[in-house]
Design a protein around this nucleic acid. Sequence first.
DNA 1: GCACGTTCCTA
DNA 2: GTAGGAACGTGCA
Length: 905
Amino acid sequence: MSQQQTPPVVLVDGSSYLFRAYHALPPLTTSKNQPTGAIKGVISMLRRLEQDFPGSKVVVVFDAKGKTFRHAMFAEYKANRPPMPEDLASQIQPIHDIVRAMGLPLLIIPEVEADDVIGTLAHEATRKGIDVVISTGDKDMAQLVSDHVTLINTMTETRMDRDGVVEKFGVTPDQIIDYLALVGDKVDNIPGVTKCGPKTAVKWLEEHHNLDTIMARADEVKGKIGEYLREALDTLPLSRELATIKTDVELDFSLEDLPLPHQDDTRLLDLFREYEFRSWINELESKDDAATPDAPQADAPADKRYSIITSQAELDRWLERLAKAPLFAFDTETTSLRYMDAEIVGVSFAIEPGEAAYLPLAHDYMGAPDQLDRDQALAQLKPLLEDPDKAKLGQNLKYDKNVLANHGIHLEGIAEDTMLESYVLNSVATRHDMDSLAREYLGESTITFESIAGKGAKQLTFNQIELDKAGPYAAEDADITLRLHQVLRPKLAETGRLKSVYEEIDLPLVPVLSRMEQRGAMVSASTLRQHSQELAERMAELEQEAHEVAGEKFNLGSTKQLQAIFYDKLGLPVIKKTPKGAPSTAEPVLQELAHEHELPRLLLEHRSLSKLKSTYTDTLPELIHHRTGRIHTSYHQAVTATGRLSSSEPNLQNIPIRTEQGRRIRQAFIAPAGYKLVAADYSQIELRIMAHLSGDPGLLTAFANGEDIHKATAAEVFGVALDAVTSDQRRSAKAINFGLIYGMSAFGLARQLDVARGVAQEYIDRYFDRYPGVLKYMDNIRKQAHDDGFVETLFGRRLYLPEINARNKQLQQAAERTAINAPMQGTAADIIKRAMLEVENWLLTEHPETARMIMQVHDELILEVREDVLEPIRDGLVKRMSAAASLDVPLLVEAGVGNNWDEAH
DNA sequence: GCACGTTCCTA
DNA sequence: GTAGGAACGTGCA
């Protein structure tokens, strides 16, 4: 048997939750540093209410700004309230917006408080026999409780009816006003009776039932408290009035006029995206997927027209449209992620949002439909793709450019790249692959490659994927790219100097990197194999010795077995633990343990050889491409937080240099016959940038005079003459200089130098004493990071620091170190990128046959140069690198020439 | 077969 | 103390 019941009206005291959410929840912020903790708290509370009271009207009431009638009654009302913190104030409008998008009536009535509006509506409902639930965190509301009115605190999940009030306060709901008048309220500045707290108030009310009687019998109350009561007699009526929630506010609507919730999903999704409420975005999206297909999403075209081009006539029509379009999105589907091996399987285009086409060319699964001939179709596309005046948009077009090159097409007119737009806009907010971007900026889920191709070893390549799956996937790629661009481009233009970073640095670098990747680097497989052989022999010796010393056979590469032998069997001291708490066997620990036992030394040598062998000498020959005989790395332009490039397959940016054995690997990087390698690197570029950014006179002078900067620092810090600096002092100064760039602490420096913390602190203090501009710069950059939530390079590239205001001090300090390091590391990255643009342009126009740039390693460029033009190329290279930025210090570039990378460096 | 932790190479 | 990529062993599926 079910009982039909009208659902209660839910009246929400928004303001009371606002403050509680603000104080109770961690200070969340978006990547743009908009605080969102209170928004999240209030909205999640509302969502819970909607769930708990299905079918109910939910009315949200907030205090209006400004004074209320209570201030007119009592000038000092709420005078003790501190002003609202800025990071709370900035969350009010967003909450209002979201409440409206949720389709909940939002009431903000001037000159009264939210309580009064709620009181009035509750009163009206009661009169009409409608049950009311008041959602509030404010105890004063207890005065409104009746047979029809209950309170619910959605944050603590507690409900309170009539009995609940008696239980909690010890008085009935209609005694609450008198109770509040007696007790008073410090924060609201309601006077009350001095020294009268809950206990006394309840005692008096039990005895006399109401305030009037208590006041009338004030003479009978003994003791000090009686005196206080009599003192308060004059103000008690006022206290009572202030504590009384109005139930007769004049409203120009009635309960029936307020609508049931009607959520605007599109608007809501927009807002959730703006404030980065990921889980809610996902929820809305999945709801949308399940809902009727005619509900359009934000930015999403109402209908999507994706076609598959299988006839020449259709291709002709698209070619014509593409030729006319001011900009079109373009994407290739291929057989491999490795650009050197990838063959084109199809291409897709989009000109208008929601409309895209896939041109399949090489699907070859059993029963694949007839497709246009790949070579012929590509030949028709070639003029368009190679025309620098026909603007193309893509997602990571460097890959497409490389792949097209495999088919003899040299993509030009790379006008926009959504991956780079997203990266420049915010390098850390999201990964920059298309699926992530669509989720982040369009609030849409895309068809993933895994969903059509499977994963792992059994993953299909694109040519094996059926057209009815491949078509929508590929067309969507082009469509999403176009729509992402429409969202990202305006954001770039709006934000600082990001537009110029994108347009003048990262985007034009795409073809430069593409060419470097395709050129590749020559390595001598025979040299590396010979080296591998020698390493293997030495490692075998070491392994045998180690087994003898340990008294058992074990795997030298297993940290776990090592831990057992070192710490359990041999009982060596545990010097350091890994993050997970296991005793570490890392290099510095082994160095230390080498004093105690012979085994660590054997192991250290074995490890370093094993590293070289497995990572370099064994692996590099395998990466030599069969077609070119060279090694082709991938440079990643949207990976690092700071603006640097990264390199993979192989990582050319961590080829060994420090040890003799390591340098032998560099020796395997060689120049072709008739050519030499020229390697040019910026000297101390980050310290120079620090000098420039800080403007410290001492540092500027030292660089201007061409001094050995570590020596100069040592002279200052240790107070000795320049020519009296010892090598030990110079070494310490060098560590200090590096530490500065990394945002060091005394603790870190102490560990680096192996001195006491106090000593390290003394060095730091003396440094800042001698270079006060640097100290000021460090302080400023920290402050800026805290205020803005981001730091900038000299050229305006931004790095957002979402954790800079984290409660967790460790996270916050880590963010501060990043804040100090990023402008220097990032400016250096900007500078070498600018240099690469200049150098490539110069070489392509003036020396296309004799010199080419093939590698970049953060502060170093490596060129292959024909032997007859070494001098002019080296000079021109140094000149252009030095001129890539004009700082207040010279940019010194050192260049070397050699038959291999080791010689040239 | 894959994710994770540890270690180690670079600027 | 900053920023990366890669190999290996281990434990789980």
